[in-house]
Design a protein around this nucleic acid. Structure first.
Lengths: 173, 173
DNA sequence: CTTGACCCGTCTACAGCTTCACAGTGCATA
DNA sequence: TATGCACTGTGAAGCTGTAGACGGGTCAAG
């Protein structure tokens, strides 16, 4: 039987976190000492381990409660699938913000030679590795054919303006 | 002079958001009507436009206040650079969670056209263009030497996990 | 029995809003 | 003029998950 502080230390959490978990009914100690100390048993430790595992996946505490208390098998997959979608959305948001910040940085530092640099840096690197203009061209065509979505992401990454992207992406036709 | 509801509609925000911005001193209307309605002038509209631009970059309202009220040039770059780092960290977290969720799901079904495929798509494309393993390696070394920041961004773009990135980035040493 | 390390419950704070409750305004129509 | 509806005002509370502080009780060792 562990007291709250010990359990917290064992899992690298803070006491407040466990108090909170208790307050929302996610993890309540199975016993109390005579001095009213929370006492966590082995079952509780196992439960907390599962909680931490799900938490690392970024699943909300509300959903974790659902998962632990209603052990219908399909529920888990449901929650996980949904989490995957959330993650994809969040990644999109972040990528977008990355491009925006990069753009802001490019325009902020003395108007001019920042954003075209990306493309230049890139082509210089490839040229240094022995890539010819023609190689790059057929490589883009290949990329567009194989995975147009990723290709777009890549062009975005290089800060290639929309107009130029269109030209590049029609090379193959 | 616009009332709060009109301004909100114009920017696709809610009234409460503007109320909140006023309450924290981020955007206070430059006038009031006789009935004590908030009246936003042209200056206010411009300010809000900047606010929205920064918000799209995910910059915190606190930082936006700093940027708008203390227009030292260096401050902007400072904030943006820091935001870029935050974004990189957040992307790492999400990628990690993606892997964990995928693992929990039984790793049979990959998360769509996403993460593990990226690296493979990439190397396949380069290989098809006649790049050897060794070529790629020296190319990474070159990239890291020339522009480590962009290199990291690129590795992020490929969804390479943090651990592997470290290995790649020390090839040159 | 004292000391120090723990624990109790409760409260506050963080970001960025949203939602609610209740009251006053502005304008058009009956 | 009265009515009605859409708008506005202020203030407070709620959300998520966690950290930390408070004043005071509890436990074990010395």
């Amino acid at each position: 039987m562990l007291t709250i502080g010990r359990l917290a230390r064992q899992f690298g959490l803070s006491r407040s976190t466990l108090l909170y978990y208790d307050s929302i009914g996610l993890l309540s100690p199975s016993g109390r000492s005579k001095g009213d100390y929370r006492l966590y048993g082995e079952e509780d430790v196992k439960r907390l381990a599962r909680i931490c595992a799900y938490r690392e996946a970024g699943i909300s505490l509300k959903d974790i409660i659902r998962l632990l208390d209603a052990p219908r098998e399909s529920e888990l997959a449901e929650v996980l699938e949904q989490r995957l979608e959330e993650l994809a959305g969040a990644m999109d948001t972040l990528r977008n913000q990355q491009r925006i910040v990069a753009g802001l940085l490019g325009r902020a530092e003395l108007p001019g030679p920042e954003s075209p640099m990306d493309k230049k840096i890139w082509t210089d690197l490839l040229a240094a590795a022995g890539f010819s203009e023609q190689d790059m061209r057929s490589w883009h065509i290949d990329f567009e054919r194989t995975n147009p979505q990723k290709h777009k992401q890549f062009l975005d990454f290089l800060n290639i303006p929309e107009k130029e992207q269109k030209i590049i992406r029609t090379w193959g036709n």
